[in-house]
C-alpha cells in the first residue's frame, strides 16, 4: 500500500499542504488508538498498526524529497536509482566550495536551488518521468548541503 493510498489521496507531487493535513486528520480520526480503548484486543492491535502507518505516510508525504521518492515508486514500480550524472556532481562540488568561502551567500543559494528543483520536479512528474531520478538526487544533495 502506498503512502498516498494510506491517506486516501490521489498520487501527485504538487500536493496542497492543507489537503494533506485534512486527509491526515481524517485518517487519524478513524484509526487513532484513543478511539479503540474500549474495543477488543484484536481491534486495538489493528488500530495501532493502522494509526502508525497513517503517521508514517503523513511524515513521508509532508517532506518533498520523500514524497518524490514515494510517488516515483507508485508510478514506475521501483525506487529511483542513482543517475551517476557528471553535471550534477560538478554543480554540487561548486556549491560545496562556495559554502566554505561564503557560507551566508551559499546558504541562500542552496535555498533558492531547492525551490527551483522542487518546481522542476512538479513539471517532470507531469510528463517527463525519465528526468525525475536525477532531480530527486539533486534535491537530496541540496537538502544535505543545507544541513
Amino acid at each position: 500500500m502506498s503512502e498516498f493510498e494510506v491517506l486516501g489521496l490521489a498520487p501527485k507531487f504538487n500536493l496542497d499542504p492543507a489537503e494533506l493535513e485534512q486527509a491526515y486528520f481524517a485518517a487519524q480520526r478513524q484509526w487513532h488508538p484513543d478511539r479503540f480503548l474500549t474495543q477488543s484486543a484484536d481491534e486495538k492491535a489493528e488500530a495501532a498498526v493502522k494509526s502508525t502507518q497513517v503517521n508514517q505516510a503523513y511524515q513521508t508525504l509532508k517532506t518533498p524529497l520523500l514524497r518524490a521518492r514515494s510517488l516515483y515508486a507508485v508510478l514506475v514500480g521501483t525506487l529511483p536509482e542513482s543517475s551517476q550524472s557528471e553535471a550534477l556532481l560538478q554543480d554540487m562540488m561548486a556549491l560545496q566550495e562556495k559554502l566554505m568561502e561564503d557560507p551566508e551567500a551559499a546558504k541562500a543559494e542552496v535555498g533558492q536551488e531547492l525551490d527551483n528543483c522542487e518546481l522542476h520536479l512538479v513539471n517532470a512528474f507531469d510528463g517527463d518521468l525519465e528526468a525525475v531520478p536525477e532531480l530527486i538526487e539533486r534535491y537530496a544533495y541540496l537538502v544535505r548541503l543545507k544541513g
Binding site: 487519524q28 480520526r29 487513532h32 484513543d34 478511539r35
Partner: peptide, 14 residues
C-alpha cells in the same frame, strides 16, 4: 481526555 477515552469523544490528540 479520561472522559473522552472511556465514553467516546470527537477530540483528537496527536
Amino acid at each position: 481526555q479520561a472522559h473522552g477515552l472511556s465514553d467516546g469523544s470527537d477530540n483528537l490528540l496527536l
